[in-house]
Simulated assay, not measured.
Amino acid sequence: MRIKMIWWWLLLLAAALCCAAFELPEKGRGCVVLRTHGMLGADCSSRDLRDVPQNLDTRIEVLDVSDNKIRELTTNSLSKYSSLRFLYLGDNTIYLADDGVFTPLSSLEVLDLSLNVFRRIPFDVLRLPVLRKLDFSQNGIILDDPDVYKGAPVSNSLKVLSLAKNKLKEFPPLWMVPQLEYLNVSGNELRSIKITDIAPMCRLKEIDASHNSKLFKGGLDKCDCYLFSTWIERRNIKLIPQVSLNCPPTDTELCENSTSLREALDLHSRCNSKVETFQRQAAIKKTWMWAGIAAAIFVIIVLTGALFMHCRNSSRRKVSANNNNQMVCNDVKKMPPDPSSSQLLQDL
């Protein structure tokens, strides 16, 4: 009886251990793995995480770690997930990212760092080769020191940038994103936008400057107003909100010979040179890629042809050898009997 009781207790203990091992993950520990638009992804949002999970499939292309309690990104935070294309880190309290934390993400296209406490855009982000969209809204960026981006790398891919709802009082220096097309600086404290601010972005199509209550409300020089309105009109840049700047009458000839315009044209020209360089490099890279593919196809065709010829020659040699053997056999059959051999048989 006592032995049976011991066995029952052992069975109950084993069952309890199994349940503990396979119980559903608690909040903050489990991520949902899913397929989205044909890509492998992981939803780790709203789980009270303090770090980026390290136990996910390294092949994931989409990772959502938004609405957690992450404060720092170390060099190992994202190093496992080099296949990422979409990364959402919004609504955390990230204030620090180690140098090189984003470097392994060479396939990253979209990065959301909104609702954090960064004070500037990490330089590593600008080095990402195919990043096209960056959300840096609601980070409390003040940009008191315009020299903070001195030495920053130039992004050759970024098309969309949001700096909405920060604390910008001056237009940020954005010479490092020459291919930018859409810029959102809404909900800040901007007082003015000058042509020298936007000239370094020679592919710019739209500026959302809404909800800047002090923008263009005094303090804008007559020439600055005229030049800005003329610049965006001639280059088809859409300004939101679409308000008339109501520039006061001014001497247009004097403004068009101003230092500001010459500086803006020089910045715009430099931007075009950078973009053309990027396009040439991309074209060369594409050419080499297709050349490599063509070379690989050529090698495969040559090897396939060589293998085919080898197989055909081998088959011919086998057929020829079989024919020769058959001829030998036929010749042996046709040979007349040896008289000496017949005499020996008779003697036996």
Rank of each mutant, 00 (worst) to 15 (best):
N55E: 08
N55I: 06
L56P: 02
D57R: 10
D57S: 11
D57W: 10
D57V: 08
D57F: 08
T58A: 15
T58M: 05
R59E: 15
I60N: 05
I60F: 04
I60H: 02
I60R: 01
E61H: 08
L63I: 11
L63F: 08
D64S: 07
V65P: 03
V65W: 01
S66K: 07
D67M: 05
D67G: 00
N68K: 03
N68Q: 00
N68F: 02
K69D: 10
K69V: 03
I70G: 00
I70K: 02
I70A: 04
R71Q: 15
R71H: 08
R71A: 13
E72V: 14
L73F: 06
L73E: 03
L73P: 03
T74Q: 05
T75Q: 14
N76M: 11
N76S: 15
S77T: 13
S77H: 08
L78W: 09
S79Y: 01
K80H: 14
K80S: 15
S82G: 08
S82W: 06
S83T: 13
L84G: 04
L84P: 04
L84H: 00
R85A: 12
F86Q: 11
Y88A: 08
Y88L: 13
Y88V: 10
L89A: 09
G90L: 01
G90M: 01
G90R: 01
D91R: 15
N92H: 09
N92A: 10
T93P: 03
T93Q: 14
Y95H: 13
L96G: 00
L96P: 00
A97P: 02
D99L: 04
D99G: 01
G100V: 05
G100C: 07
G100F: 04
G100A: 06
V101H: 00
V101W: 00
V101C: 11
F102V: 05
F102S: 03
T103G: 00
T103N: 05
T103M: 02
T103P: 00
P104T: 15
P104W: 13
S106H: 03
S107L: 12
S107P: 00
L108N: 10
L108F: 09
E109G: 04
E109L: 14
E109F: 12
V110Q: 11
V110M: 12
L113C: 08
L113F: 11
S114N: 12
N116Q: 10
N116K: 10
R119A: 06
R120W: 02
I121H: 05
P122N: 05
P122W: 02
P122D: 04
P122C: 03
F123S: 13
D124S: 05
V125M: 03
V125D: 00
V125N: 04
L126T: 04
L126Q: 01
R127T: 11
V130I: 14
V130T: 10
V130Q: 05
L131V: 10
R132T: 12
R132Y: 12
K133M: 13
L134I: 11
